[in-house]
Design a binder for these strands. Structure first.
Lengths: 233, 233
DNA sequence: ATTGTCCTATTGGCTAGGCCACTGAGCCGT
DNA sequence: ACGGCTCAGTGGCCTAGCCAATAGGACAAT
């Protein structure tokens, strides 16, 4: 196995519960289980996996700590709504609502993401972005605020950047962003303005112009932040 | 149900292993144990806490997942060096080393941090930044690479931005950054160049010029990234 | 019909006790 | 010195079992 001269193979030992946990998550992914769905009973699951209940229990503890499942005495084991823990989210919320902080983080991440997206977007990425624009447009035309379309757009841009680390960070503050998003789009005339901003960003990304994309995204985020600032006064 | 007057006590049930884990961490704090120190043997610890070995084992799994301890077969349970988990770190490392991703994230975060620092720095912040510059300068003059001073500088700038969310994100990738840092500063003449970059950033921050600070930081990060890119070839 | 009570099957929580596998240190023969 | 061996201590995992909580149905009271 990889006769690499660089890594003398520390030969890391794997505990059984780790393998079990991995198998369970794999099984969840395979069967496309969603939050609220139940895992098989412990006894059954243990025999299925060929391990003791004690070991399975360890695996469930691990998954519980990670935030994948919730084990309920007398009821069963159910999938948690949030597949990943949002440690950051909790940290912030604990210190009351700090909308400006979220705006800052968004600005830092999304400006860079837009620039990267302009450089790396595939045709498929552009299709997703266009679809998001269209969805928001139709929603607004129908009298809606375009909240969903807005979210789709930003997610599409994030995807187009093809940067796993930044994507992960965005996902960690996505919940925080969602709150400000609704707030912002509730302002009169804001949805149309916001959509126009999206269009500018999308054009720059399509053109492959990183600087213009970054500038457009920065302006857009600043626009959104207006609400939050007003809210303070 | 749900005839709630708001919060009728969700009455959250606590699992035994959670209490055990808390007691262990408390015990660690009390006795001021540091990384590398050993916990008592499982059998002894279990009887001391008045629980079965299986339950204690669950608690240890939880602590292991969080990253507090490392359980070594046949040897014992030792404290880990990093008291907090770096979930992101693991995610990235699992997908092999993705240096470019780290650079991107660093650029996104630190550029914004530098701009914010220019706007918000206190005299105390500036003192810390200067101290870091001085430390790095002396280290280099003494023949060192200035690794520690470099780290101090970036941490001081991060602090000066006074943005808890961004600071948290930086801390999550700090370990990843450290690896690239050492690599970069090992290049000949790099320490001095890097220090000059720091000085430019520090000046801009001291002047309160956000744009210049951001530009200087961006340039600095790009300089550092050179190494990582070379490494691929 | 609705409500409240009880019963019970099912499911997780935890314990006890035991055997196996690994680690490290000391012993011993070479 | 060196290399192999032994052995005590430690974690890994299992089996078997009882306790506790939950949900849902049966059934009585209203």
């Amino acid at each position: 196995m990889s006769e690499s001269a660089r890594f003398p193979r520390p030969l890391q030992r794997t505990r059984l519960y780790e393998q079990v946990a991995e198998q369970i998550t794999a099984w969840i992914a395979e069967n496309d289980l969603k939050s609220g769905d139940r895992l098989p009973p412990e006894r059954q699951l243990a025999t299925s996996l060929g391990v003791s209940r004690a070991t399975l229990s360890q695996a469930l503890v691990a998954l519980e700590v990670i935030g994948v499942v919730a084990v309920r005495h007398g009821d069963g084991t159910v999938l948690t709504d949030k597949p990943r823990v949002e440690r950051i989210t909790d940290a912030i919320r604990a210190h009351a609502e700090r909308i400006p902080d979220v705006i800052e983080a968004r600005d830092a991440l999304e400006t860079k993401l837009a620039a990267l997206a302009a450089q790396r977007r595939t045709q498929n990425d552009l299709d997703h972005i266009d679809a998001a624009l269209k969805a928001m447009d139709e929603d607004i035309a129908g009298g809606g605020r375009g909240v969903h379309g807005d979210e789709l757009f930003h997610r599409a841009v994030t995807q187009a950047a093809h940067s796993p680390l930044l994507e992960q960070m965005m996902s960690e503050i996505s919940e925080l962003i969602r709150e400000t998003r609704i707030e912002s789009l509730s302002q009169p005339d804001r949805p149309r303005t916001s959509l126009a901003g999206h269009q500018k960003i999308a054009d720059a990304i399509a053109d492959g112009d990183a600087e213009r994309a970054a500038a457009a995204m920065h302006g857009h985020v600043m626009l959104v932040s207006d609400v939050a600032l007003l809210r303070d006064e």
